[in-house]
Amino acid sequence: MRELMTFFIELLISSSLFYLGFLIIKNHTTPTFKRFYLVAWLVFSVSFPLISIQSDQYPSVSINQIVIEASNRPQPNLVLKESQSSESSPDLSVNQNAAAVANDAKNEIDWIMILQTGYLIVAGFFMVRMIIGLFQIVMLKSDSKPVKENGLIIYQVNNPKFKGASFFGWIFIGESAQQEREIIISHEGIHAKLWHSLDILLSHIYCCLFWINPLSWVLKREIGLNTELEADLHILQSENRVIRPYTTLFSSRFCRCKANESF
């Protein structure tokens, strides 16, 4: 339990340091650089506490310390006197008291076990919800009509409220979103090309495992928003003049709210 508490304390400290650094660079760097920084935050905020715990479990001991401890260790006395042997007889009353204390300790509520179980239950809940979200994406793909367009396979969703989304190489577009069709395909195609779904998936797993850390949810939100900003930047830098004027409008209407969804 001590190692677990140490891990979460160091996780919070490392996450806080990364978050302070992110606040400094947030408005002065490109979305691509911020993406690498956020992924580094996700990876190293967990790696540092793990390395620290492993180093504490296996402390380094020099040869001089071993020699000094061996020389200071008392030598065993092999000669036993009758008086010593008589004094070493067990005291029944002391043993009975120790047994009673041990039984009382067993009967007490194990709060540590309760806390660990509660934490795992909440983490399991978030993990199951994430798996359900993945299953819904697979079902959305199976219920959609695939159409090949510009070398990409587009899955048309028969839902009037659905605009567009992507998951790795799967690009979804609503059949009712014909006016923004070209913009949506270009935007979601950039998400698929840059593997943004991997960043979002890792941030969801991170939140499931370390939900008790409030900065985990901040990291998840910033990764989702940064993927949209990076996709916008690639569209703005493209040579397609038809897409460029609608980029900001598309991002504000559809992508910002999508960053807070499951995927």
Rank of each mutant, 00 (worst) to 15 (best):
I112L: 11
A102K: 12
I109Q: 12
L115D: 04
S144K: 10
D91E: 10
S142L: 04
L134C: 05
K145D: 06
V101T: 08
V101N: 13
A100D: 11
Y119N: 07
E108W: 00
F126Q: 01
G118P: 06
W111M: 09
K106G: 01
A98H: 12
P90V: 15
F135K: 14
K145W: 07
A123E: 07
A100G: 04
K106F: 01
N103E: 09
N95M: 07
V122R: 03
S142E: 11
A123R: 09
V122P: 06
L92K: 00
I109K: 15
K106S: 03
I132E: 14
R129G: 13
A102R: 14
G124Q: 03
L92S: 08
A123P: 02
M130Y: 14
V138A: 15
F125W: 07
G133Q: 06
D91N: 15
M127N: 07
V122A: 11
K145M: 01
Q96I: 07
K106N: 02
A123T: 02
F126V: 01
V122S: 02
I137V: 15
I109L: 12
L140I: 01
A98L: 11
L140H: 00
A105C: 05
V94R: 04
S142Q: 13
V94Q: 08
I114A: 05
L115R: 00
Q96Y: 11
N103T: 04
L120R: 05
Q96T: 04
N103V: 06
F135M: 06
G124E: 04
E108D: 07
D91A: 10
L120C: 12
G118Q: 07
Q116F: 11
N97Y: 01
L140N: 00
T117W: 00
N107Y: 08
I137M: 13
I131L: 15
A99N: 14
R129T: 02
